[in-house]
Design a protein around this nucleic acid. Structure first.
Lengths: 131, 131
DNA sequence: GATATAACTAATAATTATTACTATTATTAA
DNA sequence: TTAATAATAGTAATAATTATTAGTTATATC
């Protein structure tokens, strides 16, 4: 059994994620952590992010832009992604388990979860267009 | 204005996608097309798949496994993905536009679409487990 | 408190998925 | 049939991620 050992780098990565709400990619986290740990490597960031995901302390988002995004808010919730700038917003919207049950009727396997991403244009990109 | 020219390779790629319902990745399509065009290159497959997406003749799926999958069925529909084997099934389930409207209440931007992926374990993987 | 050891790190190599470039070939319009 | 041009094959480049490795630290045990 692997016993987890404390690491300041991992703490810092988690703290960074908890402090911001823009669902950064590994690369963005890397850039931020480098302020505190200039010698940290991208590999360490990836390893710890994935470790934190495994521990259930953060969650990984794949919104379709190719890169993994990370979110310190592990409560299941929906996301909205802007087609123009790629920013991601949380949707404080209730997730009903009924949807899984409904979908279950159409699948031979066993559904246990679902993810939904809403797409469109965010507030600030809409403003840019009218100006 | 770029004028589209016929290409047998592109036809074959489209035909291949229409014949199968397993939502293959570019690489899988490449392997299949090589039976007919042994000298086709992976770049050609990617270019034509993306071209067909632009033309609206097929759609691209990003289910969270890192690779793009392609689907000749362009009608909006939901998908189910098996966590074990990674296979993807179509859900012949109606998509209600109400969900967008509901979510719209929580977003400052303008929502125009959403995607939902259901996750779980498929029929054949369930069977493997019990045996 | 010293020390062994196992998890940690940085650095880098390898992989995977995808896109870009370029010389050649195929399609189409004149 | 020819000339223009888009598409191709082949290759190189890039981006995101994972794996490897050699050296460094934290922690349990002595």
């Amino acid at each position: 059994m692997k016993q987890l050992k404390y690491s300041r780098q991992r703490e810092s990565i988690k703290a960074c994620l908890m402090a911001r709400h823009d669902h950064p990619t590994a690369d963005t986290v890397y850039a931020a952590i480098r302020e505190e740990f200039p010698s940290i490597s991208l590999g360490t960031v990836y390893r710890n992010l994935n470790l934190l995901v495994e521990l259930g302390e953060i969650q990984k988002l794949r919104c379709g832009d190719g890169a993994d995004h990370f979110d310190a808010d592990i409560r299941p919730h929906y996301h909205f992604m802007c087609r123009e700038c790629g920013c991601i917003e949380d949707l404080p919207m209730e997730i009903s388990p009924e949807i899984n049950e409904q979908a279950q009727k159409y699948v031979h396997g066993k559904i246990d979860s679902h993810t939904t991403y809403f797409y469109g244009v965010c507030h600030s990109c809409l403003e840019k267009k009218t100006s």
